[in-house]
Design a binder for these strands. Structure first.
Lengths: 224, 224
DNA sequence: GTGTTTATGATAGTATTACTATTATATTTG
DNA sequence: CAAATATAATAGTAATACTATCATAAACAC
């Protein structure tokens, strides 16, 4: 199996973690720990202990833990976009491509052996719980200027483009896609923690229900 | 003008802040400060300085700053529900009531003199920026058990009920309403900070565009 | 009006966090 | 082999999120 890596905005890190053993340890252990502890309880000190390194060493890869989260989330969106690209091709009708994109966004994640040191299932849970924390900070504007949200913006733009192909007159393609990208995560979260805010069940049907909810939402509004 | 107050879940506070001068100072000053500093930068120590009291005294009203945020957000949702109740009546057709509810959710907020010590405009901005932080924590389940999200759940249920009146066969009323309640906030945030994720402009048309986006989204999907 | 409860203020202290700095020791590279 | 670089080890700092104690002032009960 070919070993792939994503070219991420290099403001996300101080030193690229994909290229060294320590860097890869930082990534894979932090995914596991943020998933287990939650982002607030996760610290570089605890991480350093578990990878048997030091806090100072971790700081040589990431300026702070917020940037590490941004990195992980950027990686996630790159991975999603890559999988949408794999699953679609330009010769398909736009509606087909939009359906596929929604499939990829909502579907239950499985470990992807192309990226050995990233546990995509845990990373998906992290994105569900922590995504909003990447931009709901006092640094949004600065982070945005540095292009740290590029992965999310690029994905949103790509799918919004398909919406416009289907109905060039629909006036809110970006709003629609950003809404459903977030809604997919939120409904998954609610199904576990605040079930009265959703009609999605927590069991294995959940992904399918979110899928059907969102597909209907999108197609109803762009085709009306 | 009659002075009103909301009966909020009493797990939200240690001592009810509406009943004392110090309590009211805590509320109004924390609204101003969280709006100005952001929730992370806001601390009880800074608050105590500004109201010329002490940290220990603030802790006699709120267990911690997370509960204070929950309190403010609960207050906000109670206020929204109250205003929807004012603006609708049971004799109206369901579609009319749903439109009105969306109006109230999206509309630009103005100071409401019925609640003298709360600056609703600032509180609205707080909810836009900080709402997700109320439930994206390791305490969600505990907080939920204590009923601290009651305001949001109650509002969601009420509006979802109207959706079901309009189309009893629509299978996702709660998901739809929780999605649009959050989308209204997110699109407002994006219009300011991440404009490429939205088609809503930052100027005074913004609220109207969000309104039109959401009204169309809701009615298209429940009437299809 | 005295005594008692209750609210607040003043002050101190603790563990944890999010860093920064320095120096020593490996490891890689030229 | 020398020089550069990466990492480890250790220490230190300011801020945060509390907890605890005691004094005083206001309110309220009789």
């Amino acid at each position: 199996m070919a070993v792939l890596s994503f070219q991420l905005n290099n403001h996300l890190f101080v030193r690229d973690p994909q290229h060294t053993q320590l860097g890869q340890n930082i990534i894979s252990k932090s995914v596991e720990m943020i998933d287990r502890l939650g982002f607030e309880q996760f610290t570089f000190k605890k991480l350093a202990e578990e990878i048997e390194s030091t806090e100072a060493s971790v700081y040589r890869y990431f300026e702070n833990k917020h940037r590490l989260l941004l990195y992980l989330v950027a990686w996630y969106w790159s991975w999603i976009e890559y999988r949408i690209d794999l699953a679609t091709n330009a010769s398909q009708p736009a509606e087909e491509r939009l359906k596929t994109a929604i499939d990829v966004i909502v579907e239950e994640k499985k470990f992807d052996p192309s990226f050995a040191f990233v546990d995509e299932v845990a990373l998906h849970r992290i994105v569900v719980s922590e995504l909003d924390k990447t931009y709901l900070t006092k640094w949004v504007d600065k982070d945005n200027q540095e292009g740290l949200f590029g992965g999310f913006k690029s994905l949103c733009k790509k799918i919004a483009g398909i919406v416009t192909e289907i109905n060039p007159k629909y006036p809110y393609p970006n709003s629609l896609i950003s809404t459903v990208l977030l809604a997919a995560k939120q409904q998954a979260f609610f199904s576990v923690h605040l079930p009265s805010l959703t009609n999605v069940s927590q069991d294995t049907n959940g992904a399918e229900q979110i899928h059907s909810f969102i597909k209907r939402l999108v197609f109803d509004t762009i085709k009306s």
